[in-house]
Design a protein around this nucleic acid. Structure first.
Lengths: 255, 255
DNA sequence: CCGCGCCGCTTTGTCAGACATAATAGCGCC
DNA sequence: GGCGCTATTATGTCTGACAAAGCGGCGCGG
């Protein structure tokens, strides 16, 4: 899938199935903001101008801007225009924002920060999951593991299974706030496996790591789960950074 | 400040300064959703009907719905209506959603979950802050401490200072994702101090806890900071739950 | 010359009414 | 009884108009 963020030639009405016009526009502008094409403080073009250029009504465009404002990316001021918000005010953990960020190749700092957060949350989450998991949680994780084994991390299905494993684990904590980090973790997971699958000659098999986490959770062993997950995250980070160092940087890429 | 979520008699055009009509409506409906007045799966009334009842244009109402959809609270489907999303899909870490949740008295499970998350993140955040803090970070935290000491946790200013301390600490981590948890932590902090200040006879002074965290960060002592913060969060949780047990439950309250 | 306040213009904010479109439910036909 | 068509009814989108709120410039006065 190719990202096409240059709204100059964006045809909003092209074959869209589920996403409405405002959604398409919001995504487009959102991508440009998180990718740095629009920078904080910069003001977007006027509503009449932009909506005209995109051949959509002003109302539809305004709804798009509202979506972005709801995610903290922009702020509209009368007379002055719609201005891109400073980065600290962005709702970075919003699933859409997170997705937009990771449609481009994130820079090292971003990726490192995300792994730092995973490193804080996931080990404890694994411990909680070990204490609280129900049978359905185990089934979901087991199913994901099976999927990883079956399709491998090079395939889309395999990566989806990897994400599903972590999602099921976070859900198993029974903590709604923790569970709402799924989008963020998923983004990191995708990038990890994407890198390994694409650039690394011998991609280290992370399935055993996952299996150990699963076993500890299944065995209701919180501290074991914590340790196993700590190692998993550390190894995933190492794999990712190694791969990036080895192959240098591309301008952008799409998993 | 009193929350007034019953949109039946909501006068959207009453003295609003900064918040536009869609914002007011979004907040109103958002409050009703997170408070359980509208339940997941339930469909909101039609756009024409509701916008008419509120005496606002359909466009304005639609923008409000878009805001809620951007936060994962609702999902609009043609012909079927705008339906409240299942709770797992809510963007709970969104600052607005978080704020709406904590405008009512959160139930025990919610508060416990939030403290669980703090317990995962803040100790490590303190450790990171100890390693990376700059002079401005220290100054911000020191200022917040001074504010806490000066105004006390019973006052609004004091609680704001408490929040500011935690916000400055999260910012000092240099991790943007961690920093975007400020809203969540702030909500928990407010409720902690609110409870203690309102209901507890002798409110335990948490200033020394904060001071120890600060000292460790100032002294660039990561593990010390981690320990101090762990204790701070544990004590805060204990204070809060103790206070709640002691006084039983009120239907709702507003800090 | 400098400062202060008024005025107008630009941009977002809101409104009204119309038509488009899709998904459901119910009807009718096989 | 099952299948497909159609009418209904939501949201989706468009158009064009007016309201109002800041910023900037202009002019007056010190």
């Amino acid at each position: 899938m190719t990202v096409k963020p240059l709204s100059a030639g964006l045809n909003v009405r092209a074959g869209r199935k589920t996403l409405r016009i405002p959604g398409v526009i919001a995504r487009d502008i959102g991508l440009q903001i998180v990718s740095g094409h629009y920078r904080p403080g910069e003001v977007l073009n006027g509503e009449i101008e932009t909506s005209g250029r995109l051949h959509v009504s002003r109302a539809a465009y305004r709804e798009a801007v509202r979506i972005l404002a709801a995610k903290g990316l922009v702020k509209a001021l009368r007379k002055v225009g719609t201005r891109v918000t400073p980065r600290e005010e962005w709702h970075l953990l919003d699933p859409d924002v997170m997705g937009w960020i990771f449609e481009f190749e994130p820079d090292d700092a971003t990726l490192a920060s995300l792994f730092e957060l995973r490193r804080m949350v996931e080990p404890e989450a694994a411990a909680l999951a070990a204490a609280r998991r129900g049978e359905e949680d185990l089934a979901a994780m087991a199913g994901a593991l099976k999927g990883m084994a079956r399709y491998g991390l090079e395939s889309k299905a395999g990566r989806a299974a990897d994400q599903a494993f972590h999602a099921a684990l976070l859900r198993a904590t029974g903590n709604a706030f923790v569970a709402s980090l799924i989008a963020g973790v998923g983004a990191a997971v995708t990038w990890t496996t994407f890198y390994k699958g694409t650039h690394s000659r011998q991609l280290r098999d992370s399935l055993p790591d996952h299996q150990r986490v699963y076993d500890a959770i299944a065995g209701q062993d919180p501290s074991g789960a914590r340790e196993a997950m700590t190692e998993l995250v550390d190894l995933a980070l190492r794999d990712t950074t190694d791969a990036r160092k080895r192959i240098g940087r591309k301008k952008r890429a799409t998993p």
